[in-house]
């Protein structure tokens, strides 16, 4: 297996609480991995450690063979490690069009330019419209983000991640807060991404997880308790115990 992205022995304590306890996960190009686990298991913390938003106590993160553990978040993004946020982080006074245009310009190394407007660049505008259309946001292109519904802000998070052309994409509960009907848009958007990209998705919606993933990792209390196929996960005794009371549907969904 050709490893694109490798996390080894990652550890993080918040005070006495071991939130991430010796976690190792490797991903190859084309992987579709679901990271699941009960609330408070440490899934978001794992993403924050990997992207550099939080510093790990120990452990290593490598991307295409390069050690990125000590790098700033922006430097990792420039190398293709892209994330979305569980709680939407957007610019409230900017429009969806401006968000996506800025992401594209930044990706192409043109965001530092001090003259010109993105709307005068046909290639940028074309891509902006395509990206917004895929997520059903084209009608809202010129509204400020603060004026659009939360579910649609969630979709814009996905649009930004797509526009950044990731090599490794980490999605933290992309469907949370999105109306049921709209989640198909997320799935369709993910389908349109290049196949050789590695995607790790965190979600509590088991139907979505089983449709998406070819591999499932279960995190409980900061520890990986399962790493295997979607078929095997529902039969695993430790997973059932971890979820007991928390997810009655963990077993029934398969």
């Amino acid at each position: 297996m050709n490893t694109l992205f490798e996390v080894s022995n990652l550890k993080k304590n918040f005070g006495a609480l071991a939130v991430t306890n010796n976690v190792s996960i490797g991903m190859a190009a084309g992987d579709r991995l679901a990271l699941i686990g009960p609330n408070g298991a440490g899934k978001t913390t794992f993403v924050n450690l990997v992207t550099g938003h939080i510093k790990p106590d120990s452990g290593r993160v490598t991307l295409s063979g390069e050690d990125v553990t000590g790098m700033r978040p922006a430097a990792r993004v420039q190398r293709g490690l892209i994330r979305s946020f569980q709680v939407t982080r957007l610019f409230p006074d900017m429009t969806p069009e401006e968000h996506v245009a800025l992401a594209i310009l930044q990706r192409d190394g043109k965001a530092g330019r001090m003259s010109g407007h993105y709307s005068a660049k046909p290639a940028v505008m074309k891509e902006v419209r395509e990206t917004l259309s895929i997520l059903g946001l084209i009608e809202l292109s010129h509204l400020k983000v603060r004026e659009i519904a939360y579910g649609q802000q969630r979709l814009l998070e996905i649009a930004l991640a797509m526009a950044l052309k990731p090599k490794v994409l980490l999605l933290d509960e992309p469907a949370a807060g999105v109306p049921q009907l709209e989640t198909t848009r997320i799935e369709r958007a993910l389908d349109q991404l290049p196949k050789d990209l590695a995607i790790l998705m965190i979600d509590h919606d088991m139907d979505l997880v089983f449709r998406f993933a070819t591999r499932v990792v279960v995190l409980a209390a900061g520890t990986v308790i399962f790493d295997g196929s979607p078929q095997a996960v529902t039969k695993d005794q430790r997973v059932r115990e971890a979820y007991l009371g928390s997810y009655a549907n963990a077993g029934s969904a398969a």
Partner: peptide, 26 residues
């Protein structure tokens, strides 16, 4: 010209949410 340029958008991004801006790679 400056405030309408891509750089001007980056600057507004710094004010509105630096974490999001960094997550875009800036």
């Amino acid at each position: 010209i400056l405030v309408r340029s891509p750089f001007g958008m980056l600057a507004r991004g710094v004010k509105e949410d630096p974490v999001r801006l960094a997550a875009m790679g800036a």
